[in-house]
Design a protein around this nucleic acid. Structure first.
Length: 972
DNA sequence: GAGTTTGAAACT
DNA sequence: CAGTTTCAAACTC
């Protein structure tokens, strides 16, 4: 196993299975390139994806703490999935093999994943890198999850192929399951010690699936090294990919595919992935599927969200593992996993997760794009490409956006994340160009994101990224994901500084030491944060207060990070190394404890982990702003419970409403409320405030626009900061559409987190769109306003970015299906649906319509994906979709569950809805308009979500794209 | 970095 | 449900 054995074998197997040529990775120059080139590896961070799993339900997040490890393990697992992996990856296998061989030489294996994960890594790994095996404990559950997923996915993948076939293919490439898995693991591990551990887990996971193969522990580091990529590959390679990181996965996949070399790095990898996908329709490759899955899932989601989810989860996990990122997150995933039995189905959410991969690294994406653009364009890989970077071929892509990943996180986190991340903007031009540009600097930071904030960022980024890449993000690690991707992107951007188009340069990034460093560090940080978390990042974060990354770090001293006082815990994320907490039990190692505590808390307050912010379709405040209309409540979002501020006048972060960039609602008991985002009705909004808000909105819009563009690229954090502030704006979303979008965002957050699903979707959606962004410029502008709205919230921003992207990219139309979306429509359902939808959605959009982007919160995703995000767009177009409902739904939705959907959501949703505000809001303010709008939106939104099956969505999209306008109008 | 303020979470 | 305490983030210096 471990040994990559002769790649030849693997390749052979691969060949058999995949038929794809397994050129020994080593052999293939391409492989080398990739390994060398790929900055991707860093992407591993992507693992972040893990978050997704989290997506399902916040609770899960907690549960998932392991996830991180798991995720890593998951990677392994994936690798395990030998079946696919080996076969599938034959091509990759080669790579893997090569990698392996290389690794062998070094001792480390690279799995395709690895390669995918991080080209960087590869290099390193090659050297030796890496990978330290982290044996850590395996988190089997996760792994299993992953595995299962992968499996399931694999199964589906084929189905799903469509969109993201490439990915899947690529994934599949990973040849030998066992070996691969090992390798993959290794890869990841190599980077971090923890990883090492994780890898083991992953391996275990894999083992579970294929204990044999894995052996659980791959002997040595090698395995670990291989872990990420390889093992996964085996598994359904897809799994790998996904697991590894969306980005990574993609990369890895790419690598595999490429035997070509292409150093091209990620992009190449991506291409390869795509190519393979195209070539290999394989589904078999479960792993590949991951990536694909995302896309596929997305598409398929509609069909079988669960699978998608699962895959995503696994992926995410993997990704998480890979990247430190995972650390935090996503326990939800675990939980979810648990929740949803391994089997894919339940976990549709997971599908979302897959998104995470994408999210993994916008950077990656970018990287990919270049390549992809080159190849991808050719490659059918649509999905992959989409996933990878929607950027690459946004057009074809259906993005998977699954990003909902964020979902797992709680709103809070999300929101926060937004802020943190804001800085960066990435613009991806998905459309064929594949240009990704990342502007933000913060990407990295974002990447790193921590739980809450990070999450936000992550989400955003992830969303964006993910959207870009693939649908699936992961929730799991909110942070990681986004962060990774972002980080990557950021790194890219930073390094390259080339904002946009640099995407191509992923390699460069890789190549450039600085870039590499950045990536690595970033990725690591983001991914590994807790593990390795590069000091720098930590520093940054710490300096920031959280955040550089956006990730927050807690500083708990007495609560062991097991109470809601802890931001990390509250966000359902594990504490990261960067956290300065004392006696922390919020770590994967204490997963059981965390889960227990979490349960206890939930028993007392079921909504304890639900997103605090719910989208209200109408928030009174928003209306105020509302340029557009009143309908908009600036923030459709509201704090569920409302704040109780007495001295801060809701003008400081002490105020949860303010912190979340949402207006206060009737539910608030604050005194002297001057919440910029929307004072309590009582207080009425001050004109001044309104002005401020509007200004913010405008700014945000502008920024968002940029962001969007960037976002499309990835994360775009840029907006974030402001966004943070701006976030407010979101609430204010200008137009209805805006509102809707916002609602998304907000909802996204909220949803994502708590309920979940939505958020996930949103993110996904967002990310996907990005690709188009390039095209979107115009759109951006147009949308910008909306975008801004979306952006406004931090979370939103994050998501929003994606969304923006989506929005931006006019392209996104909801391919999907308004209908579908609509179908789900009910707000309540919505949440659940959304959850599921989200993912799926992600996929479908392709919008062409600029409008759609509105929906977009997801837009970005859509953009990239094009279709993927569409759901969002759909929503947007409808706009209202999201709006959805209100908070409640959101909450419920949040759960991110979306995918999983109902399960998670439903519970939450019910409760969620509660938020006084909704009622109030609904009733009151904006109420009128707001709520109405919200509902209206919701309906629309719903439709978007519904988009379970990508395929369906796509269909719808195609059909509806035209219809959408009609619908929209009608809905309106 | 230390200390203060603030408001949520937890407890009674 | 209300009041109090505890806690950690946010903020200030």
């Amino acid at each position: 196993m471990d040994s990559p054995e002769p790649s030849s074998k693997i390749t052979a197997t691969i060949n058999n299975t995949l038929s794809s040529d397994p050129v020994p990775a080593q052999d293939s120059p391409v492989f080398n390139y990739i390994s060398n080139l790929s900055p991707i590896q860093p992407v591993k961070g992507a693992p972040i994806v893990q978050d997704f799993s989290g997506l399902n339900s916040p609770p899960l997040l907690l549960t998932s703490p392991r996830i991180n490890t798991h995720s890593r393990s998951s990677l392994l697992k994936r690798s395990q999935f030998p079946k696919l992996s080996t076969e599938v990856f034959s091509g990759r296998n080669e790579d893997y093999n090569n990698a392996i061989t290389d690794s062998d030489g070094t001792g480390v294996f690279f799995s395709p994943l690895r390669s995918g994960l991080s080209p960087f890594v590869q290099k390193v790994s090659d050297n030796n890198i890496s990978v330290h095996v982290q044996s850590g404990t395996p988190i089997r559950s996760v792994d299993e999850f992953l595995v299962d997923v992968s499996n399931s996915e694999s199964g589906n993948p084929s189905n799903s192929n469509n969109t993201s076939p490439k990915v899947a293919d690529s994934i599949p490439q990973s040849p030998n399951s066992a070996e691969d898995s090992k390798l993959s693991v290794i890869n990841i591990a190599s980077k971090d010690e923890r990883k090492d551990e994780i890898p083991e887990d992953a391996a275990r996971v894999v083992v579970e699936q294929a204990e044999e193969d894995n052996k659980g522990k791959f002997p040595s580091n090698q395995k670990y090294t291989g872990v990420y990529s390889t093992s996964d590959p085996d598994l359904p390679s897809p799994g790998f990919c996904t697991k590894i990181v969306p980005g990574l996965a993609a990369h890895s996949s790419l690598h595999y595919h490429y035997g070509d070399q292409q150093m091209a790095q990620l992009s190449t990898a991506g291409h390869t992935m795509l190519d393979e996908a195209s070539n290999i329709p394989i589904k078999s490759l479960g792993t590949a599927h991951d990536c694909r899955d995302d896309s596929v899932k997305i598409s398929t989601m509609s069909i079988a969200p669960d699978e998608g989810i699962v895959q995503h989860d696994s992926q995410t996990k993997a990704s998480q593992h890979q990247s430190g990122i995972s650390r935090r997150c996503l326990q939800f995933e675990d939980a979810q996993q648990k929740m949803a039995p391994a089997s894919s189905s339940s976990q549709n959410a997971s599908g979302i997760v897959s998104c995470s991969i994408q999210p993994v690294s916008p950077a990656v994406i970018e990287v990919v794009e270049p390549v992809s653009s080159n190849r991808s364009s050719t490659a059918s890989n649509k999905q992959l490409t989409q996933l990878v970077s929607s950027s690459v071929n946004s057009e074809s892509l259906n993005v998977k956006v699954s990003k909902p990943s964020g979902i797992g996180l709680h709103l809070n986190s999300i929101v926060n994340g937004m802020e943190a991340g804001s800085g960066v903007t990435v613009s991806v031009k998905s459309t064929q160009r594949g240009n990704l540009s990342i502007r933000g600097k913060k990407l990295a930071s974002m990447m790193s994101c921590h739980p809450s904030k990070n999450l936000k960022n992550c989400l955003i980024s992830s969303n964006v990224v993910g959207s870009n890449l693939t649908s699936g993000d992961n929730d799991g690690k909110h942070e990681s994901y986004g962060s990774d991707a972002e980080s990557v992107a950021a790194s890219l951007s930073l390094n390259n500084a080339k904002p946009l188009n640099d995407t191509v340069l992923l390699k460069p990034t890789e190549h450039t030491p600085s870039n590499k460093r950045k990536f690595n560090s970033e990725h690591i940080d983001s991914n590994m944060d807790y593990n390795q978390s590069s000091p720098q990042k930590k520093r940054q974060k710490t300096s920031d207060g959280n955040d550089g990354d956006g990730c927050k770090r807690c500083n708990c001293k007495k609560t062991k990070c097991l109470k809601l006082y802890c931001d990390c815990f509250a966000a359902g994320v594990y504490c990261v190394d960067s956290c300065t907490c004392q006696g922390c039990f919020n770590r994967p190692e204490y997963e059981d404890t965390v889960l227990d505590v979490r349960q206890q808390i939930q028993s007392r307050n079921p909504l304890a982990f639900a997103p605090k912010i719910v989208q209200h379709s109408t928030s009174s405040p928003a209306n105020i702003l509302g340029e557009g209309g009143a309908s908009f409540t600036p923030s459709s979002a509201r704090h569920k419970r409302g704040c109780n501020c007495k001295k801060s006048m809701c003008l400081k972060k002490y105020c949860e409403c303010y912190q979340a960039n949402v207006g206060c609602s009737s539910g608030c008991r604050c005194e002297g409320c001057k919440n910029v985002f929307g004072p309590k009705e009582e207080y009425g909004i001050d004109l001044v405030n309104k002005h401020c808000i509007t200004e913010r909105l405008e700014r945000s819009v502008e920024e968002e626009v940029e962001m969007v563009t960037a976002t499309s690229g990835l994360l775009q954090s840029g907006p974030i900061n402001q966004c943070n502030s701006t976030p407010l704006t979101p609430s204010f979303r200008r137009s209805n559409s805006v509102d809707a979008s916002k609602s998304w965002f907000t909802s996204g957050r909220y949803l994502s987190s708590p309920d979940s699903g939505q958020a996930n979707t949103a993110p996904y959606g967002l990310s996907p769109g990005s690709p188009r962004n390039s095209n979107n410029h115009d759109i951006h502008q147009e949308t910008t306003g909306d975008m801004l709205d979306l952006v406004t919230f931090d979370h939103e921003l994050n998501y929003g970015n994606a969304k923006l992207a989506n929005e931006i990219s006019p392209g996104f139309h909801v391919t999907g299906n308004m209908d579908d979306i609509l179908a789900p429509p009910k707000s309540q359902d919505w949440a659940s649906n959304s959850g599921g939808q989200l993912i799926p959605q992600t996929v479908h959009f392709q919008s062409t319509d600029p409008l759609s982007w509105h929906n977009s919160p997801m837009t970005h995703m859509t953009q990239f994906d094009g279709s993927g995000m569409n759901t969002l767009e759909l929503l947007d177009s409808d706009k209202k979709p999201y709006v959805m409902e209100d908070d409640t739904p959101a909450i419920l939705k949040d759960s991110s569950i979306p995918q999983i959907g109902v399960k998670v959501n439903s519970p939450n949703k019910k409760r969620v809805s509660p938020p006084y505000r909704h009622l109030n809001e609904i009733g009151s303010s904006s109420s009128g308009g707001g709520l109405k709008t919200g509902r209206k939106f919701i309906l629309r939104a719903v439709p978007s979500f519904p988009p379970l099956s990508p395929c369906i969505q796509s269909k719808y999209v195609a059909a509806h794209s035209t219809n959408n306008s009609e619908k929209d109008s009608s809905s309106k």
